[in-house]
């Protein structure tokens, strides 16, 4: 079998500023080239934290375990090193950056990813093509990053970046949330158009809908920081129909009440 794009081994993650807040409690996850994995789970189960930790967010601390990317242990790598190596995270809540235009961000990101300055013409041509594919107006690129974007615009902007960056691993954290039905189809088509044999995709979602467009090979369920179940696409359908309660009951777990901080 080919080397996994992503190989997460026994990962335990806590909040960097509050190491006593343990969120991810031992996750193993292998994504191979060309595979699509879906990660589901109740609110607060640790999906975004896992995604952030894989991307190298300094807000979180890895207490145990490793993250391998294309066979290399990158647990200690900085986020920018991971991104340059081909990892891409589409944020659940993309950060507004007033003053920095999408164009400037993309130009910097592309230069970083490719290791050379991309000629202006080539860059513009790629930008236009990607915008078109995502049915986004060109004026969008001149706006400040995520600043005053609607929820749907933010998600499209993430996919625009994904489209320009050509990563080998794409983690889509609730990219479907906040999109209207047409936008969801456009974004999903955009993602599908980017599919290449070497690209691995991890889709974090609460809904079956996006998985109708982007068919997952494997569906995982994360509960209280652990993957408690993995299965085929029917697992997502099952969750769509019955929610998480049957799974929780079977495991003898109760639904965690929402709590502040810890």
């Amino acid at each position: 079998m080919s080397t996994p794009i992503l190989d997460v081994r026994g990962l335990e993650v806590s909040v960097a500023a509050h190491p006593d807040i343990k969120i991810v409690r031992g996750v193993d996850l292998v994504v191979r080239p060309g595979e699509i994995h879906a990660l589901m789970g109740p609110n607060g189960s640790g999906k975004s934290t896992l995604a952030s930790a894989i991307a190298g967010s300094p807000a979180y601390r890895v207490d145990a375990g490793q993250v391998f990317f294309k066979g290399e242990n990158m647990t200690a790598w900085r986020p920018d090193q991971r991104a340059r190596a081909g990892m891409f995270l589409s944020f659940q809540y993309p950060t507004p950056i007033p003053g920095v235009t999408m164009v400037n961000l993309l130009r910097g990101a592309l230069k970083a990813r490719r290791g050379v300055e991309v000629p202006a013409r080539e860059f513009l041509a790629e930008l236009r093509a990607t915008l078109q594919q995502l049915k986004m107006d060109e004026s969008f690129a001149r706006r400040y990053v995520n600043d005053g974007f609607s929820g749907g615009e933010k998600k499209r902007a993430e996919i625009l970046q994904l489209g320009m960056m050509h990563p080998e691993l794409a983690i889509l954290d609730e990219t479907d949330s906040g999109l209207d039905v047409d936008a969801l189809r456009t974004v999903a088509e955009g993602v599908n158009a980017l599919r290449r044999p070497e690209l691995g995709i991890l889709i974090i979602t609460h809904y079956q809908r996006i998985l109708d467009y982007i068919r997952p090979d494997v569906v995982h369920v994360l509960v209280q920081g652990r993957i408690v179940r993995s299965g085929g696409p029917d697992l997502a359908q099952q969750i769509e129909r019955n929610g998480y309660d049957p799974i929780l009951q079977e495991l003898g777990l109760s639904r965690e009440p929402a709590k502040a901080g810890a």
């Binding site: 991104a83 993309p94 507004p96 961000l105």
Partner: peptide, 15 residues
């Protein structure tokens, strides 16, 4: 803003 910094770094830009 640390979040903004992480966002840009996650796009491959060094610090």
């Amino acid at each position: 803003d640390e979040d903004a910094l992480f966002y840009l770094e996650s796009r491959g830009l060094d610090r």
